[in-house]
Amino acid sequence: MTYEVPDVPGEETEEVAFGFDSRGWPLWEVFVRPKRGLSHAHVGSLHAPDAETAVQNARDSYTRRAEGVSVWVVPSTEIFASDDSESLFEPFADKPYRHPTFYDIPPEVGQL
């Protein structure tokens, strides 16, 4: 359920401190294979004390409607990400010759 929770006029809202505190169980990223033949795909995250429990929690939290046949869990801190702000991927956008539709082939040629 999603709700509108309004701020009370005149009431101070909290100051949110940025930065994780590490008291709780660590965060794990969850990847689910929807069915055989497909790759595991990222579906979300959860908290668990260890890998084994994380797998069980992933099963209970992310496959309640038979969404998967297999799960992976990875500690969130172990994910290394690209720096998206530096246009790392833009150079690939102007290379249409990598795609099959770039080439004009007469229909008589048949299946290529």
Binding site: M1, Y3, E4, V5, T13, E14, V16, A17, F18, G19, F20, D21, R23, G24, L27, G44, S45, L46, H47
Partner: peptide, 26 residues
């Protein structure tokens, strides 16, 4: 989980709820 991507932990959010600093739908 979605909120945690913004740099706050679930424990911190829960604490704010328990302390009455964040609310829930009335």
């Amino acid at each position: 989980s979605a909120a945690e991507t913004l740099g706050i932990s679930r424990d911190e959010m829960q604490q704010l709820l328990h302390d009455g600093k964040q609310k829930y739908s009335s």
